[in-house]
Design a protein around this nucleic acid. Structure first.
Lengths: 224, 224
DNA sequence: GTCTATATTCGGATAGAC
DNA sequence: GTCTATCCGAATATAGAC
C-alpha cells in the first residue's frame, strides 16, 4: 500500500505522457464532432462534451485553452482531411480532366460531412476566426486548386473568380438542399465542361476581335 | 385635469390604434435590422432591441410572441423586398436576356445587405424555421425564377438545378469574400451566357446522337 | 491533470400591478 | 400596452484543493 519510493511512479517516460495526452485530446476532438453532428456547431456545450469523454467540464481546459481553441483544432483537422482527400486523388494527366476530378472531389467532400463543410467554408460561429497556423492549411488547399487551373491554362484572376463561384454554388446547393445526397455532385463534370467551354468561347471571341482590328486599321502593325 | 367623461379618451378609433401599433411594430423591426447589422443575426438581444425603441424588454412581447416570431417577421420582410426588387425590373423581351437581368438583380440584392442574404438563404439561426406564411413568399420568388427559365425554354429540372447552383455560387462568393462590392456581381451576364451556351451545346449533342441512331438502325422508323 | 465549487454573465420568458 | 421585478436556464471560465 504505502510505496517505499515515490520516484518510479513519476518517472513515466515523457513520451508516454505526451502520447496519452495526445490520445485524450484526439478523443475529445472526435467527441466534439459527434456533438456537432447532433446539435450543430454552435450547439456544442463543454458540459456535454465533457460527459462524452468522461471528464468534468473544467478538465477540458487542460487540453484546450478555450472553446475557440477547440473550434480552431476542428478547423485545422477538417482542412487536413480535405488536403488528404485531394492528395490521394490520382488525378488525370489531362489538366482539364484533372480539374473536373478535383471539383467533384470537393463537392463530394462537402456533402460527406455538412457540419465540417460549414466550419471550413461558412462562418457559423460568431466571433470565431481561425489561427494563422490553421488558416495556412486552408490557403494551401486554395493554392492547390489554383495550380490545377493554371496547369489547365487558366491564369486570369477573373476566370478563377468565376470558377470558384461555380464550385461554391455546387457545394452550397448540395449541402443546403440535399445533404448527404448527390443531386448537385453529379453535375460536377458538366459544370467543369461548361466552364472550359466558356474559356474557349471567350478566347475565340478575343482572337476574332484582334483579327478584325488588325485587318481594318493596319495590315500587320501593332495595335494601339 | 380631471376628465368629466372618460369615454372620449377611450374611443380612439380602432383604425388609429391599429395604425399606431403597426407603426411601432415597424419601428421595432427596423431596429432589429440595425442590431443585426451591428452584432450579427444571432447577436440580437431583446434587451438591446428594447433600448433602441425606448421600451422595456418585456414590452416587446406585446408585439412579437417570441424571438423566433421576430426572426420570422424579418424573414418575411426580406422576401417581400426581394419580390419588390424583381417586380420593378422591367425585364427584357428576350427571355434569355431577362434571365440574366434577374440573375444580376439577385446577386446585387444579396450584396446590398449581407445579413438579409444570410437570413433568407442560409440557416444562421439554429432552430429557426420560417412559418408557412413567410415561407410561401420564398416559394413565390423561387417560382418566379423558374418561370423565367421556362420562358427561355429551360424546363428540365436537372438544368434548373445547375442554374440555381450557378446563381447561388455567385451570391455566396460575393457575400463571403467581397461584401458590399461587385467582384462577382459583374460576372452575372457571363455566367448566364455560359449556362445558355451549355444548354445549346447539349441540345446539339443530343440531336447529333438522335440523328446517328436513326440513320444507322432504321431509315425513318421509331427508336426502340 | 482532475476534481469540486463557484463566479460571472447573459439570455429569453413570465407574473402581476397599473 | 407598458411597466417593475423576477424567474429560470444555460453557458464559459476560474480558484484552489488534491
Amino acid at each position: 500500500m504505502t510505496p517505499v519510493h515515490t520516484e518510479p511512479v513519476h518517472t513515466e517516460p515523457v513520451d508516454r505522457r505526451a502520447q496519452r495526452r495526445a490520445a485524450k485530446r484526439a478523443q475529445i476532438l472526435a467527441a466534439a464532432w459527434t456533438l456537432a453532428h447532433r446539435e450543430g456547431l454552435a450547439g456544442i456545450s463543454l458540459r456535454d462534451l465533457a460527459d462524452l469523454v468522461e471528464l468534468r467540464q473544467p478538465s477540458l481546459y487542460a487540453y484546450f485553452e478555450s472553446k475557440h481553441d477547440l473550434y480552431d483544432a476542428m478547423f485545422a483537422e477538417g482542412n487536413r482531411q480535405l488536403l488528404a482527400r485531394v492528395a490521394e486523388l490520382e488525378l488525370s494527366q489531362d489538366p482539364r480532366t484533372a480539374t473536373k476530378e478535383m471539383v467533384r472531389a470537393l463537392v463530394q467532400f462537402s456533402t460527406d460531412d455538412i457540419v465540417r463543410y460549414q466550419l471550413l467554408f461558412q462562418r457559423p460561429i460568431p466571433g470565431f476566426e481561425p489561427s494563422v497556423a490553421s488558416y495556412a492549411l486552408a490557403v494551401e488547399f486554395f493554392e492547390f486548386g489554383r495550380a490545377r487551373l493554371v496547369a489547365a491554362g487558366v491564369t486570369d484572376p477573373e476566370d478563377f473568380d468565376v470558377f470558384t463561384a461555380l464550385v461554391a454554388g455546387l457545394a452550397d446547393q448540395q449541402v443546403a438542399n440535399d445533404p448527404g445526397g448527390d443531386r448537385w455532385v453529379r453535375h460536377s463534370e458538366r459544370v467543369g465542361d461548361m466552364f472550359f467551354a466558356d474559356i474557349d468561347r471567350r478566347r475565340r471571341a478575343a482572337q476574332r476581335d484582334a483579327q478584325r482590328t488588325t485587318t481594318r486599321s493596319d495590315a500587320k502593325g501593332a495595335s494601339a
